[in-house]
Design a binder for these strands. Structure first.
Lengths: 327, 327
DNA sequence: TTGAAAGCGCTAACAG
DNA sequence: CTGTTAGCGCTTTCAA
């Protein structure tokens, strides 16, 4: 048995293809009676419209492209998971592509999205992507793009990312509130803009509150470096701040190695996606920067873009503190 | 400037659409000269074939559907990541769908894949999926399906999953080799077939080697339950086995709470995807069951299916032990 | 070696 | 209210 098409339905009902087409989509021109007949038969025969014919005709698909540096990441995982739900609920599918943090592959992926005539693209750019102006001109008319998380610096485009300043400020305030006096603060690679933003806000918060805490700032580009840094820096500290999950993991290894008790001997607070902090006992207190909320915002922005009703905008998502027992 | 189509190229070169089409795909009928001319212009104008027209014509797409219970999972994450690479290298795109472990949504997702005329479907079924015979008849001709990880029990279909028996056997052998005498073994929910398989193989290995170790078997359906179980069961144990990452996390929390030293006071071994064990110090020794290898196998099986050269097959992927310092 | 023509399944302007 | 018609961009027979 072959595919059920509009033509087949039309023939069976002695109607024209266009009438059937219109009946199926509740076009007001069609009489209630005809509409009913058509819909009934369609249901019985399990008619499913041919997506490709529709796409060819309308020149766009109900698909969105998603390009990330890597899928293996708590953050992107939560983002994609959340985005998939939104998409499904709205009748869209998601095509997932990873760039491996390589600008060349990123460009290929963009092209691919264009070839697939996606309705829009969500992208978190690579560390080395410095000019996205060509991305924004992709397609005719240009395909809507929503940048998220790792967003380009200068271009006027839709950006949705974590409010790094707010997150770091919250963490600093928590440490001040707990009257910590000797703080080890471990940040990521100091070349990254995310590090710079978080560090600046962290620092300024202590100044703003006239805190007298001694703060030792360290940088670590990996979990292993964070471990090394913590092994040295934890001595005498009554609290440690970790800028990211990656760093938290290294620091926690050091704490375990040194046999320090949390929170009595040392307090811990991190900025995190929320999964890693639950792996420890007591659970780590953290400032949440998960992809879930970001995905919801990004998706509704995208829908607005597709509908043509969007203005260019940069959105920052504020975090909340999730209390564990570590501070 | 609008899209470049075959017709446009044809007009510019004073050729017919069909000649251009053939030239572009190196059809032997076309003269070298014409072929060159066509390809050159195509390159200059950055011609890109319209995917939807091709799909409509050929009635299938270069897309695969991937359906999983949830994207948020180390295992599926590694699987999808690996699959995406394979797919991209072979000119395919991936449509990712999650079922939320709900058979109804799973079915909807399958329908969706069919509507998108995917070339094939990779699926890890929900815990409640008990009849996949309808899945196998989806489409005309039926869409190739490769089941992975959580595979249906009885149907004759392509299945690719972790060799649970082998993994549990390796873990048991490691414990025996280390001459552990008092082993706490924490398994998952005893209704799950994965638990039953791992438990049986674990048990039988100790019998096979005439081990005199005392083994206390516990079941835990969640990280929290694993924590509770370990808090009681760790007393007097010189080693603990964790059937999964979920359980490992709970057990490690208990070990931290009790302040036990690894590996001196208690040895730890787990079956794991490989990420979680690196979060601790010393790193946990584990039997690897990651999605990477599975994805590569699944993909090549799928390619064979698409090419029509596949026979139905059940594949089991053997694990390897990764030494940390925990045993 | 190339071209003409039909048609994949659908939509939408236009005509009745 | 319904039908006719043209065509989206491509592939593929068939004919020249």
């Amino acid at each position: 048995m072959s595919e059920v098409t509009l033509k087949k339905l039309a023939d069976m009902l002695n109607l024209s293809v266009s009438t059937v087409s219109r009946a199926l989509k509740d076009h007001p021109d069609i009489s209630a009676e005809t509409r009913l007949k058509v819909k009934e038969l369609a249901l019985i025969l399990d008619y499913e419209p041919n997506t490709y014919a529709i796409n060819l005709r309308t020149n766009h698909s109900k698909e969105f492209g998603v390009i990330v540096p890597a899928i293996v990441s708590d953050f992107y995982q939560s983002f994609i998971s959340s985005l998939e739900e939104e998409a499904r609920l709205n009748g869209y599918s998601l095509i997932i592509l990873q760039s491996g943090d390589d600008p060349l592959i990123e460009l290929q992926n963009l092209k691919r999205c264009k070839q697939n005539r996606v309705s829009g693209i969500f992208i978190s750019v690579t560390a080395k992507t410095n000019d996205v102006s060509s991305y924004l001109k992709l397609g005719e008319p240009p395909i809507p793009i929503v940048f998220f998380d790792k967003v380009p610096a200068y271009e006027a485009c839709n950006k949705i990312c974590v409010d790094d300043i707010h997150a770091a400020t919250l963490a600093a305030e928590a440490l001040i509130l707990k009257k910590k006096k000797n703080i080890l603060a471990v940040f990521g690679n100091d070349q990254l803009s995310i590090t710079q933003k978080r560090l600046k806000a962290f620092d300024e918060t202590f100044i703003k509150y006239n805190s007298e805490a001694a703060i030792a700032i360290y940088h670590a580009s990996s979990t292993n470096e964070a471990f090394d840094v913590a092994m040295k820096g934890l001595d005498g500290a009554d609290a440690v701040f970790c800028m990211s999950d990656e760093i938290l993991i290294g620091v926690m290894k050091a704490i375990q190695t040194l046999g320090l008790k949390i929170p009595n001997q040392v307090g811990v607070i991190a900025i995190s996606g929320g999964l890693i902090p639950t792996f420890y006992y007591p659970q780590i207190t953290y400032i949440e920067t998960s992809g879930f909320k970001l995905a919801k915002m990004a998706f509704s922005k995208m829908l607005a873009c597709v509908a043509g009703s969007a203005y260019i905008q940069e959105l920052k998502i504020e975090s909340v503190m999730v209390e564990g027992g570590s501070l």
